[in-house]
Amino acid sequence: MTSADILYVGGPTAVIELGGVRLLTDPTFDAPGTYAVGSRALVKTAGPARTATEIAPVDAVLLSHDQHPDNLDTAGRRYLAEAPLALSTASAYDRIGAPVRALPSWDHLELPCPDGGVLRVTAVPALHGPEGSEPLVGEVTGFVLSGEGLPTVYVSGDNASLGVVRTITDRLGPVDLALLFAGAARTPLVPDAPLTLTSRDAAEAARILGARHVVPLHFEHWAHFTEDGPTLAKAFADASLPDRLHLLEPGSSVRL
């Protein structure tokens, strides 16, 4: 089996190289600052480790959702506009248009690998908060990447539900690598529950998925995250899964 290369750019943004195919998750390249979301604001505390111009061209963007600036910001939108393809929700397509392509949950698209074969990208459900929060937070998606001779990779997007993780595992089987959006994000929009996985739930998600490796994303660089890298490390240690966790420094990469 070939390996997967992950470059952590910062926030929810990472480059995945799998079978010679390059994918970028949730493009966010803006500087630190305060960013409006309707009548509210989100505070970005650190910029990306790579600028948009430093990211080589990719074959596709995996966009969990477009409606929040911590998942798609102004510079990210400019990058997205030049991408050959972006896979996301129907809502994102309605708002952005090309190059976004709506990929409903459980549908898939096959991308050709340079050395033959295909990389299958399957859209999977995601719940950006507790049950019933969808009208407030909007539509979100995750992805599972797979192919013959390739590791299976789960990209959670902004999912906070272990029930969703169980459904994905039941339907698509275990994964080799999970990119989990964590950080236990909290905002006044949904004051009583996190909008992304807590550290403890991230460790439990790894167990449910059977993931041999976990690379957390979207757990730092914004003020609305309530848990961080040390919290993740403790949760995985408490779950007797410390060897599965790969906490990357922004700008660093790992081959798994």
Rank of each mutant, 00 (worst) to 15 (best):
M1V: 10
A4V: 15
D5F: 12
I6L: 11
V9Q: 06
V9A: 07
P12T: 04
P12W: 04
L18C: 05
G20W: 02
R22P: 12
L23D: 03
L23Y: 00
T25W: 10
T25D: 07
D26C: 14
D26S: 15
T28A: 08
D30P: 12
A31E: 12
P32T: 06
T34G: 11
A36I: 07
G38P: 09
R40A: 14
A41H: 09
A41I: 11
A46F: 08
T51G: 13
A52C: 04
T53R: 14
T53A: 15
V58K: 08
D59H: 06
V61I: 14
L62W: 09
H65D: 11
Q67F: 01
H68R: 06
H68K: 06
H68F: 06
D70V: 09
L72Y: 01
L72C: 05
A75N: 05
G76F: 13
Y79K: 14
L80A: 10
P84N: 08
A86Y: 06
L87A: 12
S91E: 14
A92K: 12
Y93E: 11
D94H: 09
R95A: 13
I96R: 05
A102W: 05
S105C: 15
D107E: 15
D107C: 15
H108Q: 15
L111P: 09
P112W: 02
P114F: 04
P114A: 08
V118H: 12
L119W: 02
V121F: 02
T122A: 09
A126G: 01
A126S: 06
A126N: 01
L127K: 05
E131F: 10
G132Q: 06
G132P: 06
G132H: 06
L136E: 02
T141V: 15
V144L: 14
S146P: 10
L150D: 05
L150F: 11
T152R: 15
Y154I: 15
V155W: 11
V164Y: 00
V164L: 06
I168L: 10
I168P: 04
R171G: 07
V175K: 08
L177C: 01
L177R: 01
L177H: 00
A178M: 00
L180P: 00
A182C: 12
R186E: 00
P188K: 04
L189T: 05
L189S: 03
D192E: 11
A193R: 01
L195A: 08
L195P: 07
T196S: 13
L197R: 07
S199F: 02
R200S: 10
D201N: 10
A206N: 04
R207P: 00
R207S: 09
R207H: 05
A211I: 04
H213V: 10
V215C: 07
P216D: 03
F219Y: 15
W222D: 10
H224M: 11
F225K: 07
T226W: 03
D228R: 15
G229F: 05
P230T: 03
T231F: 11
T231Q: 10
T231I: 05
A233V: 08
A235H: 00
D238A: 05
D238N: 01
A239H: 04
L241K: 00
P242Y: 01
D243R: 12
R244N: 02
R244P: 01
L245E: 00
L245A: 03
L248K: 12
E249D: 13
S252F: 10
S253V: 13
R255D: 02
L256T: 08
